[in-house]
Design a protein around this nucleic acid. Structure first.
Lengths: 346, 346
DNA sequence: CCGCAGCGTGACAACGGTGTCATGCGTTGT
DNA sequence: ACAACGCATGACACCGTTGTCACGCTGCGG
């Protein structure tokens, strides 16, 4: 009645149910797990005792005794659960997990290697059945021990380093090459790569793709680089500085979603959005409604999440094939900003 | 070595550690829990055995035995983890939980009452220490039983129905009134309310705020309603139909983020974005870069998540004050679309 | 020199369930 | 009629850990 009524009755146990129904605990166990070999009369008595006491079996206790040791829980390590890319993965993983009666621990590493290790520990101490990982750390060797102890691992979005494991990735190099070629094809000769933190494997791959595509275009094309941008605000400031140069780039390749947003703020803030071309990595919800529309290399985070989760549950079901890396295609979505031609000029 | 090397060694237990260190299990327990009253020599022996075996204590087993029964886990029920509003809440909750050494189960109800109940069951079977809930169902009475068994409850974004509980909410009615008045003040006399599903409490409140503000404006103002839009695409189609009317509304109040996006697609798709005013509920990442900028009533999901989580941990720490509803203010962000004046006319 | 407090240590039971196995009963086959 | 079997049921140990308690040892005061 009063708010202080916490823990008034404590939670019912299987013994309480057994006592109320006048049966042994094992019979209750059989009923709640639908094991069969229980007479209809018993089943009914147990059922009503369960309802009367509002009994909920204690998963953890069951898992402890059960041989298979399944907690029906998986850990999902993301850079940040509120980044739209990661959030989409989260949702996809949840959908697959849910079909397997499994709950998901999602956590944000904030791209901090120390926090990342802590979170893996948090997961393993809770005995998750499997791990889905977006890693920042330089060496994932310590995860080998986890896998040897029976916890399957699937890497998401970024490849494993220092161990062999399943992974689901975008081909970031190829996608960056395509994006950059698109700008070169529009005639641009001064192109800037605006990038995320180089500690992140995908950022390095995208950068490498950009560099390769520029090299392939020949000596007439000049590249500028800004790297290690940690936020929208940093990206905006960096692009504003670029635009102030005497010979500013005529095209931008913005290599991550938050960076793209920052760059767009800079372009629109200075009114030069129709003048400087832009291709972004990752799609944005309103990209098509801006003037000009934002051309992007769109990854498919839902598919990445789905495939990774399915792989994990395959492993949990006993699949023992070799480790595989699945590559999910990215698509160039043409909307206008990437097709702005280079200004005529010497 | 080979991929089939799964579960080669099984996980070390406290007994294995004790055996290797040549001590009793209780001593190992004391060391890993920093309980004191262990000689330095022992501590060292145990420590190195722990490292040698890569021992990780089994949280669940410990929680089982420990009196307090804390699993250091909370459940967070959202409509969809990939909705930006919910994702921001998720992140804020995670930050608070993390400070309390607690992991978060986040799950998407998809606004389906049945799934919602299932997920609450999933949480309670795993003995979460507390629940943070965004509920769709019409009666939350069944949660009373949970609370009586010692699980604190905090409602997020939507109020509890059928029981008294802590809640952290936006004042949706007041915010909708403010948003609607803003359109009336710009001279509009034909205003449409484009709304989310009416099963959702917040959608009803926003609708009510709209209706009240229109009534307050006097008989000269005509309101149209479209409700129960379940997606961006439905919202876009609905707005396109409205715009095709002989006397279309001159201003739109779009009462949820996905609905706003759909409406924007319709306006920009028909080229009428400078002609029809719009105020949206919930902020959008690129809202300031569209032409015109999108005026919104911005909620503060990060604050909602933070306050709710803090409240939950207060309760877990034993706070027994009366249930409270905290109201988080929303702010009108003026960017252009809401200030388009009504066309002059008869 | 003895008693007692305090510390370090480990044996044991218990947390809430489930696997294993034994038991008692009714049924069936010969 | 009796063995053999299958089914329903419950006693009991056990999953991995920690609370409780008892024990032995050291050091100190009387």
């Amino acid at each position: 009645m009063s708010p202080a009524t916490q823990a008034s009755r404590s939670r019912a146990t299987i013994r309480d149910v057994a006592a109320l129904a006048g049966v042994g605990t094992k019979t209750v166990s059989r009923v709640i797990n639908d094991e069969g070999n229980v007479s209809p009369a018993m089943r009914e008595r147990v059922r009503s005792a369960v309802v009367a006491l509002n009994f909920q079996p204690h998963q953890g206790a069951g898992a402890l005794r059960r041989g298979d040791q399944k907690t029906r829980t998986v850990g999902l390590l993301l850079d940040a659960v509120d980044n739209p890319f990661s959030a989409t993965i989260n949702r996809a993983v949840e959908a697959v997990a849910s079909r397997h009666g499994t709950a998901v621990f999602a956590a944000s590493s904030e791209d901090d290697p120390e926090r990342e290790r802590t979170l893996v520990d948090v997961f393993t101490r809770r005995r998750v059945d499997g791990l889905l990982l977006t890693m920042i750390g330089q060496d994932h060797g310590y995860l080998q021990a986890e896998r040897e102890q029976g916890t399957p691992l699937v890497f998401l979005d970024r490849p494993p380093v220092g161990l062999l494991a399943d992974a689901v990735l975008t081909d970031n190099h190829a996608a960056a090459v395509t994006a950059t070629r698109h700008l070169v094809a529009a005639g641009h000769r001064r192109i800037a790569h605006i990038g995320d933190e180089r500690r992140i494997a995908t950022a390095r791959e995208r950068r490498r793709g950009f560099v390769d595509a520029v090299a392939e275009a020949g000596p007439g094309v000049l590249a500028t680089h800004v790297d290690d941008l940690r936020s929208e605000a940093e990206a905006e400031a960096a692009v504003r500085r670029l635009l102030d140069l005497a010979e500013p780039p005529t095209a931008l390749f913005t290599a991550q979603n938050l960076v793209t947003i920052g760059a767009l703020r800079a372009l629109h803030g200075t009114g030069r959005q129709h003048e400087v071309a832009l291709v972004g990595f990752d799609d944005l919800p309103l990209a098509g409604l801006l003037q000009p529309g934002v051309t992007v290399m769109a990854q498919d985070p839902a598919r990445i999440g789905t495939l990774a989760a399915e792989r994990l549950f395959d492993r949990l079901a006993g699949s023992t094939g070799p480790e595989e890396t699945l590559v999910v295609p990215a698509t160039l979505v043409v909307r206008g900003s990437g097709e702005i031609p280079a200004p005529p000029g010497r």
